[in-house]
Simulated scan of single mutants.
Amino acid sequence: MKVLTIETTCDETAAAVITDDLEVLSAVVASQEELHQRYGGVVPEIASRAHVQRILPVIDQALRQSGQKLADLDAIAVATTPGLSGSLLIGLTAAKTLAALSGLPLVAINHLQAHIYACRIASGREVFPCIGLIASGGHSNLYRCEGPIDFTPIGATIDDAAGEAFDKVACLLGLPYPGGPAIEHAAQRGDRTRYRFPRPLLADAGRLDFSFSGLKTAVRYQVVGVGKLPESLSLSEQEVADVSASFQEAVVDCLVGKCEQALLQTGYTTLCVGGGVAANGRFRQRLEASSAERRYTLHIPPLSLCTDNAVMGAIAIERLRAGLIEPLDLDISPGLVRM
């Protein structure tokens, strides 16, 4: 069985062809990073227009790389939730058109479930049941995952997502977008103990939620001062490095700490981590140390499967096996639907 998967939830236009043995026949990603750099974040209108321009060439390239024609496929799958409305609509319209023309079944993908499923693809073996953490620019969520399409939410951010906080702090420090890689790079030269930023909600072991807005504000007050404008900011290169390292360590403490609390509360012994923040080297290092100390099994995808991609859309295979086929009047759900 071979499935074409399409991903356009935010600012990456991606397509892949994958078999039911999870063999990746092709994978294509067209990044929009350069389009959004001047704004310090993703601009939805720009993202949508870029998807319109790129979606057909990306799908065509994915099919060519795989050596497959549309008639050789068994299904068309597309991410429909959650994400930016305009971006989701471009992917869904393309998928529905291909499904209607070919007569192939249409499969809906939950983008967040797909991020966790990337761990299954990378490991080459079963990873469920597990605790799943998605840490990205738009989401910082914890789930109890009984199976690949059976998720129960147990924690989430009450304000900013971790990746969003990285972007905003990077902007404050004059670092380029995307903020995650920029802060990680600067932090390599910094002292992560120089500033003791808060770890919101970490001490509340009974609550599995995240909060990064107050941490972001604490960084602002540290580097700008109370009642002052960012225009007055004047930091040395070393100070930027130290703030970056200290901020990054605070975020990592919160993410790792809540994962440990979730494992303890549920009794689960496997942790799967997905999303763009999972590409952060310090975060990966701390997770590996935590899993060794606390003796749980850790799965993190390779860097290429952490950021948005269509390979993780292989979760559509699980939905096909469960008989979950969608009608052609399928609509998007920009907000997170019940899993």
Rank of each mutant, 00 (worst) to 15 (best):
A62G: 12
D74E: 10
V78R: 06
G67P: 15
H51R: 01
Q65W: 09
A47G: 02
H51P: 08
G83H: 12
D72S: 12
R64N: 11
S66I: 05
A50N: 05
L89T: 09
A71S: 12
V52K: 04
Q53E: 15
I46L: 14
A71N: 02
I59F: 03
A62Q: 03
T80W: 03
T80K: 12
H51Q: 05
Q68K: 10
H51C: 07
P44K: 03
L84T: 11
A47F: 02
S87E: 13
L63A: 10
V42R: 01
P82C: 07
S48T: 15
L73F: 02
S85R: 13
A47L: 08
A75V: 05
D72H: 07
D60C: 03
T80E: 03
L84V: 10
R64Q: 04
S66H: 07
P57G: 04
E45L: 01
L89E: 10
L84D: 07
A75Q: 11
V42A: 02
L88W: 11
S66L: 06
S48K: 09
A77S: 12
A79K: 05
I46Q: 01
D72R: 08
P82N: 06
I55S: 04
A47R: 00
A75I: 05
E45W: 01
G67K: 11
V43L: 01
D60A: 15
L63N: 04
G41P: 00
A77V: 06
Q53K: 13
A47W: 02
G86I: 12
D60H: 12
L56P: 06
V78S: 09
Q53M: 12
L56R: 11
V58M: 04
L63M: 14
A62N: 04
A77D: 10
S85Y: 14
D60W: 01
I76Q: 10
G67T: 09
L88S: 13
Q68C: 15
D72G: 12
L56V: 14
S87Q: 11
D74L: 05
H51I: 06
V78E: 07
Q53W: 08
G41F: 00
A47I: 06
S87D: 11
K69R: 14
V42L: 01
A62F: 04
S48R: 14
H51N: 07
G41A: 03
S85I: 14
Q61E: 15
D72W: 02
V78D: 08
P82V: 04
